[in-house]
C-alpha cells in the first residue's frame, strides 16, 4: 500500500540545508564584491584626474593609480579564492560588473603608460591583451577545462569599451590642455579598436549594445582631429600621416 509519507523527511532537510548554504555563499560573495567595488571606484576616481592632468605630470598620477590597482588585485585574489570553490557561472553575475570596471582601470592605466614591467616598459598607447590582464590580476582567463574563477572574454571586451569612452573624452580635454598629439594618438587607437570589434560576430546582447557605442566615440574624436587640422594645429608627425591618407 501507499507508503506512510509523501515526502521523505530527509529530502526536506537536505534541500533546506542546501538553500541555507547557498544563501551563506551569496552573502560572502557580496561582501567580497563590495570590497572590490570600493577599490575599483577609488581607482576610477583617481583616473578621472587624467582629464585635467597634462601628460608631463602622469609620472606622479600613474603611481597613485597603480597603488589603487594593487588594492584591486588583492580584492580579486580574495574573491577568486572563495569563488573557485563553487560553480563559477552560478555566481558570476554578482561580480561581473565590478570585474569589468577593474579591467578597464587596468587597461586605461596601461594605455596611459603605466604598469610597465622590466621586459615591457610602459608607453602611451599600449593595449593590454586578455592574457596580460589575467597575469596582472593573477587569475586565469577564458577557462574552459576547469571550473574556477577567471576572467571571461566578455568581461575583457566590455572593459575595453569603457576605456574607449573614457579616451574619447580625454581627446577633447588633452587639446584643452594643449596636448594635440594625444588627441591624434587616441584617434588612431580608437579607430583600430573599432575595426577590431567589427571583426566579432556579436549576438543581440549587452556586448553588442555597448560595442555599438564605439562608433560615437570614433566620431567624437574624429571631430576633434578635424578641428585641429582645419586650423593647422596637428603635430608635424600626424600631419604627415594625414597627408598620406
Amino acid at each position: 500500500m501507499a507508503p506512510a509519507a509523501l515526502i521523505d523527511p530527509a529530502l526536506f532537510d537536505q534541500l533546506k540545508t542546501n538553500i541555507e548554504q547557498d544563501t551563506e555563499i551569496r552573502k560572502e560573495i557580496e561582501r567580497l564584491v563590495d570590497d572590490l567595488s570600493q577599490n575599483v571606484s577609488y581607482t576610477q576616481g583617481l583616473l578621472s584626474r587624467i582629464h585635467s592632468t597634462p601628460r608631463a605630470k602622469y609620472s606622479t598620477l600613474l603611481p597613485q593609480v597603480e597603488e589603487g590597482i594593487r588594492k584591486e588585485i588583492e580584492s580579486v585574489a580574495a574573491l577568486g579564492k572563495f569563488a573557485s570553490g563553487h560553480p563559477y557561472f552560478k555566481y558570476n553575475y554578482k561580480w561581473t560588473r565590478p570585474m569589468q570596471d577593474a579591467i578597464s582601470t587596468v587597461a586605461l592605466c596601461a594605455w596611459l603608460g603605466g604598469l610597465g614591467t622590466e621586459t615591457k616598459p610602459g608607453e602611451v598607447g599600449r593595449l593590454l591583451k586578455l592574457e596580460e590582464v589575467g597575469e596582472l590580476f593573477g587569475v586565469p582567463v577564458n577557462l574552459k577545462d576547469k571550473d574556477a574563477f577567471h576572467i571571461t572574454i566578455e568581461e575583457y571586451l566590455l572593459g575595453l569599451i569603457t576605456i574607449v569612452d573614457e579616451l574619447s573624452r580625454l581627446a577633447m580635454n588633452s587639446v584643452t590642455l594643449g596636448d594635440n598629439e594625444m588627441a591624434v594618438q587616441i584617434s588612431g587607437f580608437i579607430k583600430d579598436l573599432h575595426a577590431g570589434f567589427q571583426v566579432l560576430n556579436l549576438k543581440n546582447d549587452i556586448l553588442r549594445k555597448r560595442a555599438d557605442s564605439i562608433k560615437y566615440s570614433v566620431k567624437k574624436v574624429e571631430d576633434v582631429v578635424y578641428d585641429l587640422s582645419l586650423r593647422n594645429l596637428l603635430p608635424a608627425k600626424a600631419e604627415a600621416t594625414k597627408m598620406e591618407e
Binding site: L130, A195, F197, L200
Partner: peptide
C-alpha cells in the same frame, strides 16, 4: 591592424 589577430582569436571563441 595590430589588433586584428587578437580580435579574430576572440571572435572564434565567442
Amino acid at each position: 591592424n595590430a589588433f586584428t589577430p587578437m580580435f579574430e582569436g576572440l571572435r572564434d571563441e565567442l
